[in-house]
């Protein structure tokens, strides 16, 4: 286990170094997200929305931003021919963990940009800020878990970016439904019958299942 953590740390550090030098991934998805929010606010012109609608639209932006950016950690390796170096440098478990954590940090950074900007531009005040932060953090875990394996899968495909979107979205959709339900009350919706709590439980259990499954399947896909 210690060797997995050590290897994952090496992978994570390496990815951060490259990312800070190029800012490929973060700048691309952050700009994508900001552009979508801007487009939405032009269309809606600050009309007041129901809390549930606010929650739904904000998560949809997070989802599509994730789909544009989260294939990057793996597809980058395949495109620049560094896969075999990575395979020699770390065990498959370490690679999975390192890439999962990298996606997670990317997602958290992305959400930290999206939700405040969204709330300000879309005239959608957040009533329970810390609760929204909790839901967003759990959502980031869930989305990273779903995309890490799929990103490794699409490395072997043609037209990787398109196929990634097609393959990742259906796996992420259940999470979208639960996350929207869970975060409605953060935007001020009434919470009848503990709906948020049970939706949040579903997010947690879905993430748990995805993490375990992707952890088990990844070595079988990564080794050739």
């Amino acid at each position: 286990m210690r060797s997995v953590v050590r290897g994952a740390w090496a992978v994570l550090l390496k990815d951060f170094r490259s990312e800070f030098r190029t800012r490929y991934a973060l700048s691309a998805i952050a700009l994508f997200a900001l552009t979508s929010i801007a487009a939405l606010s032009f269309v809606l012109r600050g009309q007041a929305m129901q809390p549930e609608e606010s929650a739904g639209l904000s998560w949809i932006i997070v989802f599509f931003a994730a789909v544009t950016g989260l294939a990057r950690p793996f597809v980058q390796e395949a495109e620049s021919g560094t896969e075999l170096l990575l395979r020699q440098a770390a065990t498959s478990e370490a690679v999975w963990l390192g890439k999962f954590l990298f996606s997670l940090v990317l997602m958290l950074g992305l959400e930290a940009i999206i939700f405040p900007v969204y709330s300000a531009l879309m005239n959608a005040p957040v009533v329970r800020v810390w609760y929204l932060a909790l839901v967003a953090a759990l959502g980031a875990v869930c989305l990273s878990a779903a995309t890490t394996l799929i990103a490794a899968l699409v490395c072997k495909a043609r037209a990787r970016a398109t196929v990634f979107a097609v393959a990742a979205l259906p796996v992420m959709l259940p999470a979208l439904v639960f996350l929207v339900q869970a975060s409605g009350s953060a935007f001020g919706a009434g919470d009848a019958g503990g709906e948020s709590a049970s939706a949040l439980r579903l997010v947690v259990s879905y993430s748990g299942i995805l993490i375990v499954l992707s952890w088990l399947l990844f070595p079988l896909v990564w080794e050739e």
Binding site: K156, L213, L217, V221
Partner: peptide, 10 residues
């Protein structure tokens, strides 16, 4: 390999 992993995930 890819479709076997995906079908399990699905």
């Amino acid at each position: 390999v890819v479709s076997s992993a995906y079908v399990t995930f699905a």
